[in-house]
Amino acid sequence: MSPEKMVHMANQIATFFKSQPGEDQAERVAGHLRDFWEPRMREQLKAHVAKGGDGLDDLVIEASERV
């Protein structure tokens, strides 16, 4: 998928979990990505992060390490 679309989708997930109470938002974002994103999509995300993660929410970048 286009990088813009992937970034948009990942940031939407981060936006939701950021609004939730608690301390473990990055883990919850990572958990959501593990549960619902097919490995190809997670690989694309990690590759994007490796290249600097342009446009990604910080929470997504933090979560991507645990995906």
Binding site: M1, K5, F36, E38
Partner: peptide
């Protein structure tokens, strides 16, 4: 054990060639 592609993801992956 890994989740598969959802319909929009299938279409994206198709455009990507996988």
């Amino acid at each position: 054990p890994e989740p598969g592609l959802r319909i929009p993801n299938m279409l994206d992956a198709a455009v990507d060639g996988t």
